[in-house]
Design a protein around this nucleic acid. Structure first.
Lengths: 221, 221, 221, 221
DNA sequence: TATGAATGAGGATTCATTCAT
DNA sequence: GATGAATGAATCCTCATTCAT
C-alpha cells in the first residue's frame, strides 16, 4: 500500500534521475498547499490535509520544506513570478497604451488563473501583518516592479497624448484599482451578485483615456 | 486552529437586563477581541489573549459569547453598523454629488478610524471563505446597501449633468475602488512607500466628473 | 469522568486556598516524573506517561512546568536538597568522625530512599553531558558542598588522631567511593549478586581509620 | 525515542564472508555509533547521524544490523572484550599484587581510551534498566569475570602477606571503587575541578596494603 | 457572576525503518 | 550491495472549553 499513489509518477523519466519525479512531487505539494492555504488561511491549514491532497505522506513535505512557514513562503514566491513577468511585458510597436493595458490586464482577471491569483492576493492581505517577510517579498517582487511598469506606461501614454493629465503617473495604482477590487469581489461576492470585471475595467479606462476621435488635443503645453 | 472549521452559525447570548458594568465589560471584550483578531486572524487568535487584553478571566468571555465564533461574529456585526450608516448619509441640498463623495469618503480613509476599518476589511477578505455566514452578513449589511446608495448617487449625478455617462450607475464599485485599494495599501505597504489616499481619490474623481463649466469651479488651481 | 481521580484530593484543605491542592498536585507530578525518567531516561520518557502516573491530564503538567526539560530540572533540584542537608549535618560533640560517617552515610544507602537516590545519580550520570546545566547544578549544589563537608570531617579526624594521613583531606572522594559504587551496583547488578553496602563501607573504613586500641600513635608531628 | 521500549534481543546479522571493505565499513559504523550513543544516549541518537558520521547511507546500516537496538548491542559487545582481557592479564612472577594493580588499572583511567571507557560505563549505567539484556551481558562478560579476577588477586595478596585482612576478598569492589568514581568524575566534573585519579588510587592502596617491612619494599620513595 | 485551574483533542514535527532504483 | 526518498507512527506542546469554587 506504500507506493500506491506514487507509482504512476515515479517511472516517468528514469533518464532524468530523480529530478522529474521530484519536481512533479514538489509541484503537487505546492499546488495542494496553495489550495489548502487559500481555503483555510495559514493558521487553520493542516499539514496533513496538504499531504493528503498532494498524495504524499506528511513527512514528505518536510523533506522539501523546512516547516509550514517555509512552504507558505514558497507558494507565494512561486505564484509571484508570472505576475512580475506579465507586468514587464513589452508594448507592441505602435500599440496604444490603453489597448495594451486591456490586453494584458484582462487575462489576469479572466477565468483560467483568476482563482489562483485572487488566492494569493487574499493570502497576502490576510497574512502579511503576521509575516512581515511576506509583505516585503510581495512588495519588492510584485508591487514595486509592477508599479514602475505601470508608471512607465502612464508616462508613455501622457507623452503620446493618450492621457490628458499626470494622475496615472503619480498614482499608477489608479490604473489597477478596478482590477483589484474586481478580483476581490469575485472571490467574496460573486455568489450574491456577479461582476463583469473586464467591462468594468473598460468603463474605467473610458474615463481615463479621452476619446481618440478628436483631432485636436487642445490644451497640452 | 483547534476546533475544526465550522460554519458561522452561533449567536451572541440573548441579553436580558445588563447592568452598566456588564455592558462596559462586553464592550471591552469586543474591543480586545477586535484587536486580537485583527492582528492574528481568527484561527491564530487566542481566547486567553483576548481575556487578558480585556482585563477579564477567560471564563468570563464564555458567559457572554457561546464560543470563539460567536465572539467573532459579534465583532463583525458591531463594526459593520457605522459603515452602513455612513453609506446612507444624506446629500446636502444643492450639494454636487462629487463634493458629497469626497466629503463622506475622505473621513473613511483618514487616520482616526482607518486602522480599524482596514482591520475589518482585511478580516472579511481573509475569513469570508471560511465563514460563509460572514461573507453573507457583510454583503447583506454593508456591501449591498452601500452599493445601492452609491448607485443612487450616481444616478443623481447623471441626472443633474455631473456625470457624462452611466458607467458609475452600472458599476458603482468604480467610485469606491481607489478608496479600497488605498486602504489596503496603507495596511500592507505604507512602510515601504506611503500613499496619499485622498489625493489619489481626488485625481480619480477628476476623471469621473468632467469639469462642467470653468466658471463654476472657481478655485481649482 | 473529568475530575474523578482528583476529587479525593481537591477537597483536602479548602482553608489554604489553592495552595494545598496545588502543592499536592505538584508533588505527584514530580514523583511520577522521577519514576518515569528513572525508568526510561530523559529522551524516552513520555509526558503522557508522567501525566497518567500522576493522575492528571497532559496539559496540567504544562501549567506548572514550561516543558519537559524544566520538569526534569525541577526533579533534580527537588531531590538534591535532602542530600545537601545530610552532608552538612553536624558532628555530635565527642563523636568520632568515623562513627559519624557510618551513621550518616548508612541511611543513604539503605532501603527507604535508596532507589530514589540512585535514580537521581543515574540520571545525572546519564544526562549531564546533554544538559550542561544539570551537571553544573548538581556540582554546585551537591558535589561541591558535599566535598567540602567531607574534607572538613577529614581534617577534624586528622587533627584528633583518627586519621593517620592526609589522603582523605586531599581526596574526600575516597570516603564516599564505596558508597557510590555500592549504590550503582545495587541498581544494576543486585539481581545477579546482592551486595551488603554498609558492610563493605565498614570494611573500607577499617582500612582508613587505624584501630583506636593502640595507645601510641607514634609518628604524628 | 520512537519505537516503544523493547528488550535487547536482536542479534547482529550472521557474518558470512565479508570482504575487507565490508569489515572496514562495519568498523566505521560501530565507531560512529559509539560516538553518537555516547553523546546522546540510546533514545536521542539518530540513525541518520550515525550514518553521516560513518560516511554511509542510512539504509546501509540496516544491511548489517537489524535495527537500532542490534547496533547498540553490537557496540557494547565490541567494547566489552578489551576490558575483559585486561582484567584477566597475568601477574608477573614475583610481582607484588599492589604493583600489578596499579600497573594494570592506571592505563584504564589515563587519557588514551579513558573517554571511550567512561562512555561505555555511562551507557550501561544509563541504559541497563531499559535493556535488561544489556545489564546481563555486561555483568556476565565484564563485571563477574573482573570481580573473580580481583578476588583471586586479593586472595594471593592475603596469602603472601600483602593484605592484612580479607576485606578485599569479600568485597573486591573496594579495589576498584576509586577508579570507577574517578572515571565518572572525569566525565562529569572535570571542567569544574580536575581530579588526579592515579594519585587518588595510590592513596587508596596505601590504606589497603599496609607497608610490610621497610626493607622489603626497597624502591618506594 | 467571575475566576482560572484543569482537561484532552488537535496538529506540527521528527525519525526509525522500508524499498525502488 | 548501496542508496536515500518516502512513509507514517509517535510524541511534544497548545489552547478552546468546562466547571468547581
Amino acid at each position: 500500500m506504500r507506493r500506491k499513489r506514487v507509482s504512476l509518477v515515479s517511472r516517468e523519466r528514469p533518464a532524468k534521475k530523480r529530478s522529474a519525479a521530484a519536481a512533479s512531487r514538489d509541484a503537487s505539494i505546492l499546488k495542494a498547499a496553495l489550495q489548502e492555504f487559500t481555503h483555510h488561511g495559514f493558521a487553520a491549514t493542516r499539514m496533513e490535509d496538504i499531504a493528503r491532497r498532494a498524495g504524499v505522506a506528511k513527512g514528505t513535505i518536510y523533506l522539501r520544506f523546512k516547516d509550514k512557514e517555509a512552504l507558505f513562503e514558497a507558494i507565494v514566491r512561486k505564484e509571484i513570478s508570472p505576475l512580475v513577468m506579465a507586468a514587464g511585458a513589452p508594448l507592441q510597436p505602435g500599440e496604444p497604451v490603453r489597448t495594451f493595458l486591456e490586453r494584458s490586464l484582462t487575462p489576469l482577471v479572466e477565468s483560467s488563473g483568476r482563482a489562483r491569483r485572487v488566492a494569493i492576493i487574499r493570502l497576502v492581505i490576510a497574512e502579511a501583518p503576521r509575516f512581515p517577510k511576506l509583505g516585503e517579498l510581495y512588495f519588492r517582487d510584485v508591487v514595486e516592479p509592477g508599479l514602475q511598469a505601470f508608471r512607465r506606461l502612464a508616462r508613455q501614454a501622457y507623452d503620446n497624448g493618450e492621457l490628458a493629465d499626470t494622475a496615472a503617473i503619480k498614482y499608477p495604482q489608479l490604473l489597477l484599482a478596478p482590477a483589484i477590487v474586481g478580483l476581490l469581489w469575485s472571490a467574496l461576492f460573486d455568489r450574491f451578485e456577479p461582476l463583469d470585471i473586464p467591462a468594468m475595467m473598460h468603463a474605467h479606462f473610458d474615463h481615463f483615456f479621452p476619446a481618440k476621435t478628436m483631432t485636436s488635443q487642445p490644451d497640452r503645453r
